[in-house]
């Protein structure tokens, strides 16, 4: 599913990476507020995973870059600080905010065919 379709599905507001919306194709998702869990668990093979979170600081973009995650959705209508937005723009990560809670965001994506991320079993 194209990133642009996801944005319209969750009535999201694109904060960074606008130019990538038609390039990024999402197949899987992972939701977490613990970024260490993202680092520990998520397997990303083809830059096709979206991260859904309630965290707003720049570390969501850093984590996404390190994990080859192309898109981050900030749920619960949280205000995303400027540093996060500019870092997302600089690093080419799509950051979207939505008023929906994490549960509903995940539910909508799942219903639309997005599967759960593959979980790594460690090296």
């Amino acid at each position: 599913m194209r990133a642009r379709e996801i944005v319209s599905l969750i009535k999201g507001k694109v904060l960074s990476g606008e130019s990538l919306l038609d390039e990024v194709e999402i197949k899987r998702g992972f939701a977490a507020d613990l970024l260490s869990d993202v680092l520990a668990l998520v397997e990303v093979e083809n830059r096709d995973v979206v991260l859904i979170t309630g965290i707003t600081n720049p570390q969501i973009v850093r984590t996404a870059v390190l994990m080859d995650i192309p898109m981050v959705i900030v749920a619960r209508g949280k205000r995303v600080p400027w540093e996060t937005i500019t870092l997302g723009e600089e690093k080419g990560v799509i950051v979207v905010s939505t008023e929906l809670i994490v549960f509903v965001t995940c539910g909508l994506l799942y219903k639309a065919g997005i599967e759960g991320a593959r979980i790594t079993r460690g090296p």
Partner: peptide
């Protein structure tokens, strides 16, 4: 609250 400090840091280093 920032998404860290969950006690996964060192175990995560060890894992990788």
């Amino acid at each position: 609250e920032m998404g860290f400090g969950s006690g996964m840091g060192l175990p995560n280093i060890k894992k990788n």
